[in-house]
């Protein structure tokens, strides 16, 4: 980063940026999700027809993105708690971020088949 910028860059700032962006994305999805779930009070058909959208290949990719956002926000949130409450938290904040990233990669690899498998089968045939 060039000198004279407002923020300090590196792991601390970028994890903070990613935490904000993922938080906003998850919150907007939450509004939609409560509304679609509320359709169970309309009729089983209204609910099932809407949930069918969630089963399409394009939305499956978006669900994988949602999982990515939630997993990062959850793991990095635990890191933030550790930075705030663990006496060594600030000293190890970079190591904890790379731990978060590593765990995130493992969990994302594990979620790939369950979340995207049905979409791949639908697009490329079973």
């Amino acid at each position: 980063m060039p000198a004279g910028t407002l923020y300090r860059g590196r792991e601390g700032m970028w994890s903070w940026v990613a935490h904000r962006v993922t938080g906003v994305l998850i919150f907007f999805f939450l509004f939609v999700h409560v509304l679609d779930t509320a359709l169970v009070r309309v009729s089983p058909e209204a609910y099932d027809d809407t949930i069918a959208v969630y089963k399409t290949p394009v939305v499956a990719v978006m669900e994988y993105g949602l999982v990515a956002a939630v997993l990062f926000h959850a793991l990095n949130g635990l890191r933030v708690v550790a930075v705030d409450f663990w006496s060594q938290g600030t000293r190890y904040q970079k190591q904890m971020l790379w731990t978060v990233v590593g765990l995130w990669l493992v969990l994302m690899a594990g979620a790939a088949y369950p979340v995207l498998g049905h979409a791949v089968r639908e697009v490329f045939g079973s």
Binding site: V40, P44, D48, Y54, K55, E63, H118
Partner: peptide, 12 residues
């Protein structure tokens, strides 16, 4: 999204 067929089994 993961257990028991993932999102495919979600219904009323």
């Amino acid at each position: 999204l993961v257990l028991d067929g993932g999102v495919s089994k979600v219904s009323f």
